[in-house]
Write a protein that binds this DNA or RNA. Structure first.
Lengths: 220, 220
DNA sequence: TGAGAATACGAGCGATTACTCGCATTGTCG
DNA sequence: CGACAATGCGAGTAATCGCTCGTATTCTCA
């Protein structure tokens, strides 16, 4: 989880023994990084700014992280771990034979709440064009998220071929990624709720069309 | 339209007389910028790279554009002009009382084709987090696009309050912006067609739900 | 307690980038 | 042709940024 500092080369990394102080620093750095990423975006964020926000020197940051991408990777993995705790609940809800509305709400509501609680999340995941380093850093987490969504979609569309399920999952994720900025960037609480409702409508409408068993994908 | 070079300060700009050679250079610079923006993204694109792609020196670029953002602004306006030519056709289609499928197709198909033909477009418009300079540069064009979509949505949802129409337009645009990378980044022609179909399904499903006259927006 | 490891610092290095400037060339127009 | 403006060049400049390194401090543990 916490930072692959000092050479990601898997072979002979001695893996220095962290002190409690070091673990605390890592937490502070990641918290600071999340803040600045959320405020400025990934590209505009400087490592010195992260260090300053964390109240440490630039050199200290590099005691724990190999480079800027490594900070992003660690932060992404941290987010993935937090999201993973939602998984159990989701599976439970999915197995209960509720209607689509409740199912989608059970997924979207915690997800929206997560995005509001962690402003740095969208800076790492909700971008359409990423610099190469960032893309590689978050790729595994992206894949994990897609896998989980595909599981849910698979339960929703039983008997569909795997590539179709994967496609519906990809599109669903993209819909959420596209709408999240409208929600997190909403002017007030009221507008945020309205936009969250719109996201709900969008996803439900799309999935309903899929469950309706349209034989040929795409338009008539 | 073509580049606000040399001080955007509105007052006493002498507006130098362009020679034919200069106009040609401006075209070449914008073409080069569109290419590099499309390949590298806005942040990663350097002004020197644009100049090199255009086959000119860095200094010559600044003969015509005040800075990097100014290039983006000029390119955005150029795109806006091209898109404006589609407007007349769209209005014609909209007034004919066709069904929603055809209407959406009439909007989306040229739009997808436009994105495929102009790879730099998405670098300027399909981003969720933009650096401040780029946001300001493309803001007017964004507003213009939103206005046109709102017109279409207004014809589709007669009698709805303006803020509702505006919201449906915003969401629709966001759906397209979110899905475009899936289409332009598709592996082959087949996948691209499939993803275009999915975009069509998404937008039609969403709009159908809106036209169905759901009294309260959002979820039940 | 003492030795070695982990943590901490922050000035500054090397590389990159947006942009400039002095000067040469080409076009315009009387 | 001659004067002036527009175009063109590309090495160079100032600023920024990711990251390093020498050194000082704190912690661990035998």
């Amino acid at each position: 989880m916490g930072g692959t500092a000092e050479a990601a080369g898997g072979a002979g990394a001695p893996a220095r023994r962290r002190q409690a102080r070091g673990q605390k620093r890592i937490e502070e750095i990641l918290r600071a990084a999340a803040e600045v990423f959320g405020e400025q975006g990934y590209d505009a964020t400087t490592t010195n700014a992260i260090a300053a926000r964390a109240g440490i020197s630039p050199g200290s940051l590099y005691q724990f992280f190999a480079n800027k991408d490594d900070v992003a990777r660690a932060l992404a993995e941290r987010y993935a771990a937090r999201l993973a705790t939602l998984r159990a609940e989701l599976d439970t809800v999915a197995r209960d034979g509720r209607d689509l509305d409740e199912l989608v709400a059970a997924v979207l509501d915690p997800l929206v709440a997560f995005n509001l609680a962690h402003p740095g999340f969208k800076a790492l995941f909700a971008r359409t064009d990423m610099p190469a380093g960032l893309r590689e850093a978050v790729a595994p987490v992206h894949a994990a998220i897609h896998g989980r969504v595909a599981e849910l979609v698979g339960q929703l569309l039983p008997g569909r071929p795997a590539d179709e399920v994967a496609r519906v999952a990809t599109v669903s994720i993209q819909l959420v990624r596209g709408m999240i900025p409208l929600i997190t960037g909403a002017a007030g609480e009221r507008e945020r709720e309205v936009m969250t409702g719109e996201l709900h409508v969008v996803v439900v409408s799309y999935l309903r069309r899929q469950t309706a068993g349209a034989g040929e994908p795409g338009r008539a």
